[in-house]
Design a protein around this nucleic acid. Sequence first.
DNA 1: CGGTATCCGTATGGATACTG
DNA 2: CAGTATCCATACGGATACCG
Lengths: 137, 137
Amino acid sequence: MTVSERSGDDRSRRESMCPHRLVLEHVTSRWGVLVLDALLDRSYRFSELRREIGKVSAPGKVSEKMLAQTLQTLERDGFVHRDAKPVIPPRVDYSLTPLGREAAEQVRALARWTGVRMDDVQRARAAYDAARERASA
Amino acid sequence: MTVSERSGDDRSRRESMCPHRLVLEHVTSRWGVLVLDALLDRSYRFSELRREIGKVSAPGKVSEKMLAQTLQTLERDGFVHRDAKPVIPPRVDYSLTPLGREAAEQVRALARWTGVRMDDVQRARAAYDAARERASA
DNA sequence: CGGTATCCGTATGGATACTG
DNA sequence: CAGTATCCATACGGATACCG
């Protein structure tokens, strides 16, 4: 997939959806959440960000492809600022725009809520599974 | 896919992730958002809910498969209450639990925010695309 | 270092047909 | 009506290799 086609799949598949659903999917996407959350604390370089996210998301790091794609989408939506410095070796810093900061705070709030309510969810699951077990037995 | 396997794919694919990311993905999933949002106003029957969601999500309705799957996931997580009445023809009502109501409110807040900021996003995109255009020209 | 291009397995999710 | 089972296209996302 070329860069200019990048948003193409996105569009071809869901150009039918209401546009703000798309934005919502971008910020709540698998890696989008983690990127926004990380950048809420400070700016990161590409590989640095990749390592940081790897620490949070259990076993596997993000693939370069997905991180690049995620960052480009968020940049295009105006959430992330990309600062590429013309030095050797290349150095690129990513940070949140004011708009991105708002988004990240919303996402973090939602993420925190799920953290707080995890016990309730776990219990609900156990109850659900137990009921299912009984039904099939 | 059988019902008992339903949560299986979910687990096999991402049992590696931190559990609260999973919950987050459930509530922010494509149809999860719409289901929670709809149920925040009132309870719905299955097909009723399907039609309602079809109205919101532009052209296509939800497939029965995806709606059933979404509802089961949300029910297992303790967000949705399923009330199946033993009558003919079958009648099943879906509503939010107190926990689900909290989740739905968070989601709606995020959804509303994206709605409010859509202009900013659209402008950012236009600027981004214009810059790209210029770069490749 | 910071990406992009390509290949490719596989989960995702839609359409359809069927059941209680 | 309220689902379930099956089939199937495809888009998602990881691995790899390469470039500036």
